[in-house]
């Protein structure tokens, strides 16, 4: 069953990745596209394929995988299907960093100024969370610290918008916060890939600890799980992945919440299997959403984050309804 699921998800990622490469306003035929991508035939076509469509497709996979995996890890750690990576406040803080970069003009003056400022925001958030929650606190203090950081970042973001004297900067901020993969380059891929790859590898290695946590923190500790270390690993890995994802794509919501929830029944609810399944599922969802964004309203620049929220919110409502039906 899980093997079949892995196969289906990998095939879907492959198919959607290819589809993502073949769709765009340039209107290239599939044959020209592939020739340009692989052999570099035709100057304009090669530029379109290698510098516009390829980074976009790769980023969709990276960011989807990061958000799905981070969501599954948060839910596994907290044993709560309503947990999501944004709970730690890292994405909010990364957005604040980006907003400040946009407002001050740092983003326009310095190459990669925006993603770097967002990463700095994520690092600050982690430092603050770890300082607030302390080295030995439980899951609850971690979440409370995350909510506090999240609220602070949201308030400061609103303050920047409030005091913004430049309407262009304000509208740029609004659009950036909606999340998008349009007009990203290979530089963005190289910036995000190490953080997402490293965080992902670290999280995937913790599968057994999440499995053991099914029995609660006490039992997990007695089964050989080092809880303080797991918590530190989790915070750093999720911050690295979500911080990098937010830095290059803006805020893309609901992927980390919805994907693990949809896939849980297919992996027998085992947290360790849900990790890799959610990474693949997240990639599928973001690839599909990014294709839909280009197909539904090609002329209006529909934002990726808006679409995932529009699809995600009803699914979330369904989740709440089902939770209520179970009498929880």
């Amino acid at each position: 069953m899980t093997r079949a699921l892995a196969l289906v998800l990998i095939l879907l990622v492959g198919a959607l990745f290819a589809l993502s490469l073949l769709i765009g306003p340039a209107g290239l035929t599939p044959a020209t596209s592939l020739a340009a991508l692989v052999r570099g035939e035709g100057l304009a076509e090669t530029l379109v394929m290698r510098e516009i469509r390829l980074p976009r497709a790769i980023l969709a996979v990276l960011i989807g995988a990061a958000l799905g995996l981070a969501g599954a890890a948060m839910q596994g750690y907290l044993r709560n299907p309503l947990a999501e990576p944004g709970l730690l406040g890292v994405s909010g803080a990364a957005a604040l960093g980006a907003v400040i970069a946009l407002q001050t003009g740092f983003a326009a003056q310095v190459a990669l100024g925006l993603p770097l400022a967002a990463l700095a925001g994520a690092v600050l958030a982690v430092a603050l969370i770890l300082a607030l929650a302390g080295p030995r606190g439980g899951a609850l203090t971690l979440i409370l610290a995350g909510i506090a950081v999240s609220a602070l970042a949201g308030a400061l973001t609103a303050l920047v918008l409030n005091l913004s004297s430049n309407p262009f900067a304000a509208s740029e901020i609004m659009f950036w916060m909606m999340g998008s993969l349009a007009d990203r380059s290979m530089t963005h891929v190289w910036l995000a890939a190490p953080f997402i790859g490293l965080g992902g590898a670290v999280l995937l290695a913790q599968g057994r600890a999440f499995d053991a946590l099914t029995l609660g923190e006490d039992s997990a500790a007695s089964l050989g799980v080092n809880l303080p270390r797991l918590r530190l690993t989790l915070v750093l890995a999720i911050a690295s992945m979500v911080g990098a994802a937010t830095a290059v794509a803006g805020a893309v919501g609901f992927v980390g919440l919805v994907v693990p929830h949809i896939l849980r029944p297919f992996v027998g609810a085992r947290p360790s299997r849900l990790l890799w399944a959610s990474a693949l599922g997240g990639a599928v969802l973001v690839l599909a959403a990014d294709i839909a964004v280009r197909l539904v309203l090609p002329d209006r620049d529909l934002k990726l984050g808006v679409l995932t929220a529009i699809v995600g919110a009803p699914l979330f409502l369904h989740l709440v309804y089902k939770t209520r039906a179970q009498g929880l």
Partner: peptide, 29 residues
């Protein structure tokens, strides 16, 4: 310690709807 002592807390926590076999397998971790 995990190979020296098994601990059964009073709070009976089963966090996810896993199968009985999977749950008991956790004891072998």
């Amino acid at each position: 310690r995990a190979r020296a002592v098994a601990w059964l807390p009073q709070a009976r926590e089963i966090g996810w709807p896993v199968s009985v076999a999977d749950l008991v397998t956790l004891g072998r971790l």
